[in-house]
Deep mutational scan, measured.
Amino acid sequence: FACQWLNAHFEVNPDCSVSRAEMYSEYLSTCSKLARGGILTSTGFYKCLRTVFPNHTVKRVEDSSSNGQAHIHVVGVKRR
């Protein structure tokens, strides 16, 4: 389900990036709304992400508004 969900909601775009945590959060929200069992852990979800978008990269984005915490963004992917 996770791989199908990724294909339905995201697409390849080399000029874009999406927060990896936001992607997983949206996946969890969809699973909750659909009352799905067998929800992937974040590790399983990221493995699926690598399968669906094998050419993506990740980058660390520093967020000055959150006490220097960094966010991981998936580069080469955008929301549909």
Results as ranks from 00 to 15, higher is better:
F1E: 14
F1G: 10
F1T: 02
F1Q: 08
F1I: 01
F1Y: 01
A2V: 12
A2P: 06
C3A: 15
Q4N: 11
Q4H: 06
W5K: 01
W5Q: 00
W5T: 00
N7G: 12
A8P: 00
A8H: 06
A8T: 06
H9K: 11
H9A: 08
F10Y: 15
F10A: 00
F10H: 00
E11I: 05
E11C: 04
E11R: 04
E11H: 05
V12P: 07
V12A: 10
V12M: 14
N13E: 10
N13A: 08
N13Y: 08
P14F: 10
P14I: 03
P14V: 06
D15Q: 15
D15G: 06
D15Y: 05
D15N: 01
C16G: 11
C16Q: 11
C16W: 08
S17A: 15
S17F: 10
V18C: 11
V18E: 12
S19K: 03
S19L: 12
S19M: 09
R20A: 06
R20I: 06
A21F: 08
A21H: 02
A21L: 14
A21C: 14
E22Y: 06
E22N: 15
E22D: 13
M23D: 00
M23Y: 02
M23C: 09
M23S: 00
S25P: 03
S25T: 09
S25D: 11
S25K: 04
E26G: 13
Y27F: 10
L28H: 13
L28R: 09
S29P: 01
S29I: 07
S29E: 15
S29L: 10
S29C: 07
T30Q: 15
T30D: 12
T30A: 09
T30M: 11
T30F: 09
C31A: 14
C31R: 09
C31M: 10
C31W: 06
S32Y: 02
S32A: 07
S32H: 02
S32G: 11
S32E: 12
K33N: 01
K33T: 07
K33V: 10
K33A: 09
L34H: 14
L34C: 11
L34T: 14
L34Q: 06
L34E: 14
A35S: 09
A35G: 11
R36E: 12
R36Y: 11
R36M: 10
G37E: 03
G37Q: 05
G37M: 02
G38N: 08
G38T: 13
G38S: 11
I39R: 12
I39L: 11
I39M: 14
I39K: 13
I39A: 13
L40V: 11
L40A: 09
L40M: 10
L40Q: 08
T41A: 05
T41D: 14
T41G: 10
S42W: 06
S42P: 04
G44P: 08
G44D: 05
F45L: 08
F45Y: 01
Y46I: 05
Y46V: 08
Y46F: 03
K47V: 06
K47F: 09
C48Y: 07
C48R: 04
C48S: 11
C48G: 03
C48W: 02
L49K: 00
L49P: 01
L49T: 13
L49C: 12
L49G: 01
L49V: 13
R50Q: 14
R50I: 12
R50F: 13
R50Y: 06
T51M: 13
T51I: 06
T51C: 12
T51K: 02
V52T: 05
V52E: 12
V52Q: 11
V52A: 14
F53Q: 00
F53A: 01
F53R: 01
F53C: 01
P54K: 05
P54N: 03
P54I: 06
N55A: 11
N55F: 10
N55D: 10
N55K: 04
N55R: 12
H56M: 14
H56Q: 06
T57N: 12
T57L: 09
V58I: 02
V58Q: 12
R60G: 14
R60A: 10
R60E: 12
V61N: 08
V61M: 07
V61K: 07
V61R: 11
V61A: 12
E62T: 10
E62S: 08
E62R: 09
D63L: 06
D63H: 07
D63N: 05
D63Y: 13
S64P: 14
S65M: 06
S66L: 06
S66C: 07
N67S: 06
N67T: 15
G68L: 12
Q69E: 13
Q69R: 11
Q69F: 05
A70S: 09
H71F: 05
H71Q: 14
I72N: 15
I72W: 11
I72E: 14
H73F: 05
H73K: 14
H73R: 10
V74D: 01
V74A: 09
V74S: 02
V74M: 12
V75S: 08
G76S: 03
G76M: 05
G76E: 01
V77Q: 01
V77R: 00
V77I: 14
V77T: 02
V77Y: 00
V77L: 14
R80S: 12
